[in-house]
């Protein structure tokens, strides 16, 4: 049976793992390889590296770390942040990443998703969607990597999700902004709505605070995977314990 995926997300800046508080004051959390290896050994099903160096200032950054990760890690990983053209994507995939994730560049130019899918196959094209729940509507936001640049778009989240599927996305990561960093659980309602809107896998992001939140997101929203950062980095939740807990509750999980 296809299992539900547990996906730690690591923020990367200048080749180091960092943790920011409300987009600012990035604190060094250590070496990328050490974190990645630890997560792989603890049973993570996949890793996401979000390169925040790239997204905020647009310059070309050193991505040598991708090759290093690919060399030692034996589970799939996705690289997000600052991928603006086919060549950026090609370099990252050739360096050994399994997927690339685009967000703001897809909003700027939706055809970019199709170009990526045609060049590399839909299976490695992930579209990240930052969505804010406002007065009963779900609205896509752009440039959320930088608080000052964050922009509310005119796009409805569900409509945009359907559109990116048509354009060739192979997976959607839905980051529910109201929940992000609050640790009160995933946005089940919104994830349910998006799960019903598309046929491609949906990964839940934003809000994980305790083990039960993972149980709830899988049983109630139908999400295919759950992404989290701080609860794993701080070791508040251990991936191996979490997976055993979910398996004991009959969630299909790889142990």
């Amino acid at each position: 049976m296809l299992t539900k995926r547990i996906i730690p997300c690591l923020d990367v800046k200048d080749g180091r793992v960092v943790k920011g508080v409300q987009f600012r004051n990035h604190r060094d959390m250590g070496d990328i390889l050490e974190h990645a290896q630890r997560y792989a050994e603890e049973g993570a099903d996949e890793l996401v590296f979000y390169d925040i160096t790239a997204s905020s200032d647009g310059r070309v950054v050193d991505k040598e770390w991708i090759r290093k990760v690919a060399r030692v890690i034996d589970i799939p990983f996705c690289v997000a942040g600052g991928i603006r053209n086919i060549e950026d994507a090609r370099k990252i995939l050739n360096d050994g990443a399994d997927k690339i994730s685009v967000n703001s560049p897809a909003l700027e130019k939706p055809e970019f998703v199709t170009e990526l899918a045609e060049a590399f196959g839909t299976q490695c094209v992930v579209v990240g969607i930052d969505s804010l729940h406002e007065n009963g509507n779900y609205i896509v936001h752009q440039y959320t990597g930088d608080e000052e640049k964050t922009l509310k778009t005119s796009r409805d989240t569900m409509a945009w999700a359907k559109r990116v599927q048509e354009l060739g996305a192979g997976e959607i990561v839905l980051n529910c902004m109201n929940q992000d960093g609050v640790k009160k659980g995933y946005d089940i309602e919104q994830l349910q709505a998006i799960r019903r809107s598309v046929d491609i896998p949906v990964i839940a992001s934003g809000g994980a605070g305790k083990e039960k939140d993972f149980h709830d997101v899988f049983t109630m929203s139908g999400a295919d995977g759950a992404l989290a950062a701080s609860v794993f980095h701080t070791r508040q939740i251990h991936i191996s314990d979490l997976k055993q807990y979910l398996r004991d509750l009959n969630i299909p999980i790889r142990l």
Binding site: M1, L2, T3, K4, R5, D45, I75, P76, T122, Q123, G170, E171, D199, I200, P201, V202, D224, G225, R254
Partner: peptide, 30 residues
């Protein structure tokens, strides 16, 4: 049923071919 089939799924083995030596039934693959 989401398509692509993406993630870890279990495999059962039909015979004792040398390629699947030492692998327990229902091993997971990506």
């Amino acid at each position: 049923k989401t398509i692509p089939h993406m993630g870890w799924n279990s495999v059962t083995f039909e015979n004792s071919h040398p390629l699947v030596k030492d692998l327990p039934e229902n091993s997971y693959f990506y």
